[in-house]
Amino acid sequence: MSVAVVNAGPRRGWKSVSTWIGAIIVGIAVLCAILAPALVPHDPFAQDLDKRLLVPFWMEGTDPAYILGTDQLGRDYLSRLIYGCRISILIGVTVTVVSGLIGITIGVLGGFLGGRVDDAVLFAITTRLSIPVVLVALAVVGLLGSSMTLLVLTLGLLLWDRFAVVARSTTMQVRNLDFVAAAWCAGCSRFRILSREVLPNIASHLVVVATLEIALAILLEAALSFLGLGVPPPLPSWGLMIAEGKDYMFFSPWVIVIPGVALFVLVLGINLLGDGLRDLFGTHRTDT
């Protein structure tokens, strides 16, 4: 009864398809982010009050110069969408770099040193989890004024918990492995053991966490921008586009459908890719 039925054939096939879909979505998004200035058909900030709320291509009475229509100020929606992608990716990645640095440092220290340090790390994680992220982020931005840098730092300071949890537990596992024990005996310095033995061995777990965190940061940025306390206008954040379109959504639903679908697809793509990486590295879920 202890022998598991190995029946991974069809699943693996399906998994690889979903991973590829994720990779393609992420690839396109990254390209859009990098090449945004070259890709956009119009200036995403140029208003044209004669061309307000033009409809996108699948509706009647569309203007072929504006494939996805225009917003309430007559700005080209496709161009804003592409620039919005740039903002999402930029924020997702930078937030994750900040939170990753914090979380990995804390987690590795706790897992590697154990004892009192680890107790402190666990306490920090518990405390962090009890803090309502959205509320605190809103409060910081609300009190200090909205700017991209502030937003990134705030989210980075708030989202390190999963990095810390995973880094801590994987470091503990790795620390107990033989080759690390051997390195101890050979008289290596602690720093050397950390950088040469521990970090390379927990890297794959951290990459998986990073994908999840990028997705989460993108969603949070959108939510904060939607509430008016994220990316400052007139920057075309997708969350902000949805907020600005909200007043028109009952008559022109596509103004919120387009950026919302873009946000959903991008986050889904990142998660699909992360799931695929998780299977590839053989690591376990950490997000439940």
Binding site: A215, K246, P253, V257, F264, V267
Partner: peptide, 21 residues
């Protein structure tokens, strides 16, 4: 996976349009 990728505020607006309006 879809639930994980869904922006909640946006889903709220979409429900308002569909279920509500």
């Amino acid at each position: 996976l879809f639930g994980q990728a869904m922006p909640s505020f946006w889903l709220g607006l979409i429900l308002m349009i569909t279920l509500g309006l």
